[in-house]
Amino acid sequence: MIKIAISAAETSGDLIGSTLVQALKAQDGNLQIEGLCGNKMQQSGCKQRWDMSLVNVMGFTEVLKKLPSLLKLRAEMVSYFSKQQPDVFIGVDAPDFNFIIEKKLKKQSVKTIHFVSPSVWAWRQSRVKKIKQSTDLVLCLFPFEVDFYKQNNQRAIFVGHPLAEKLTPRKNHKPTKQILLMPGSRSGEVKRLLPELLLAAKIMSQQDETLSFHLVLANEELLGWINELIGEQKINVSIDEVHSHMQTADLVLVASGTAALELALVGVPMVVVYKLSTVSYFIASRLIKSKYISLPNVIANKPLVPELIQDQANAKNIAIHAMKILSSDQSKLISKFNNIHQQLSLNASEESAKLILDFIHE
């Protein structure tokens, strides 16, 4: 029996990893897949040995607070897989967490794959040295990433993006006046962004009473605080039903991350916002090489969607950009979003599963 170890430490990784697990199981129903994952991967057939919620944090100061438990978990995973000796270890995204595990297992002759390249082309480019020490093969979701790895003599293959399989461009969208609020999946980013998004919604409502607002949360972790924050404001709230609401929304106010790419793949206009803690932003702003932070803009290499970062991500600014989008023709933008979908649609999960099984047998 082939044993596959896997580690997905974030909500986006759990979503992408779930399609990979499904594809692997379709190739070989007897595969044993286990590791660190969330509900979606577990439902797809991965045995959850550790719950992803133990790791799901972002930002330098945020990670520091959780560092002792993160180090303990990582050591536990290395110890377990050192004894079990899987045929391959797959780190799904979360490079700062997964590369150490990969490196230690690789030294013990366990084959290692990193699925989803870190944004090494955008910032902290020196990480390529760590990648080469940790990973035998990188499976890239974007075509421009392979060029960077070739320049640095790292084995890498562009497989397309799994989300382009799950999400298809919507057709003949009729305006609904529905605005979706997506403040992210981590508690830190939700706490920083949601107050500004709710205030932006209030400003927008004052300008157009026919607008309706729907807040989609990744989990129930902050639900009590969020309901208190909303108060009397007319905001519908749901948990983890984002894709159905994307289909009907005229516009989404979204935290930068995989969600922005999901919206582009469906073909929904957006305003991208992001805030880090002051310390995290100070460090990150000095390390970033890319002109853009949102994936639609990075892929197109041009500003398709507004990006409001740190102090710019304030309610007044968000509302101005949002109302401008709502009052203008977005057909050219949608066409560019469709091009992104076409570029990334390569049956990524099926292709990745084949590559992984071939790699195991090399």
Rank of each mutant, 00 (worst) to 15 (best):
S290R: 08
S134T: 09
L215S: 07
D358I: 06
A259Y: 02
Q342N: 14
G13V: 03
P86I: 01
K316R: 12
Q247M: 13
S7N: 04
Y292R: 02
S256L: 10
D240V: 07
A156K: 05
F142C: 05
S134D: 02
C37A: 15
K336D: 15
L253A: 04
K66F: 05
C46P: 05
I325N: 01
R186A: 06
S349I: 04
G38H: 06
M323W: 10
M323I: 12
Q151S: 15
T61I: 14
A348M: 09
D51E: 12
S117D: 08
E351D: 09
D358H: 11
G224F: 10
H214M: 10
A255S: 13
W123K: 04
I334D: 03
V266I: 14
I203D: 00
N39C: 10
K177M: 06
M204R: 04
I309K: 04
L344S: 05
H243I: 11
Y274C: 02
N227K: 15
K3Y: 11
E362A: 12
P269D: 08
L229P: 06
S285W: 03
T248F: 10
Y281N: 15
E241R: 13
F89W: 13
L326C: 09
K275W: 01
D93E: 10
R192K: 13
R74P: 01
D14S: 09
S256Y: 06
E62H: 12
Q330R: 09
H214T: 13
S134I: 04
L64P: 00
L355H: 03
K289N: 15
N153K: 14
T112Y: 06
D96V: 11
F213G: 00
P86W: 01
K150I: 03
E10V: 08
L64S: 12
I325F: 02
I33H: 06
E10M: 07
S277L: 05
K40T: 08
L308H: 05
F115M: 11
A26P: 02
Q342A: 13
L137I: 12
P175A: 10
W123N: 00
G59P: 00
E145H: 01
L194A: 09
F81S: 01
F282P: 05
A5E: 00
W121D: 03
S109W: 10
Q27W: 06
W121L: 09
L54D: 09
V272N: 00
I113E: 00
G224K: 13
E232P: 09
L193A: 04
K104P: 00
A315I: 08
S244Q: 14
W225S: 15
P183V: 02
L181F: 06
V242A: 13
I340T: 03
V21A: 03
V128M: 05
M204W: 02
E362V: 13
T112N: 04
V110K: 01
P269F: 04
P162D: 07
A156L: 05
P306T: 11
T248A: 11
D329W: 07
S7A: 15
D250H: 06
K166P: 04
A284T: 04
D14P: 03
Q84H: 13
V63G: 04
T11M: 11
L24R: 01
H114R: 08
G231Y: 09
I239F: 09
K106T: 00
K191W: 04
Q330C: 14
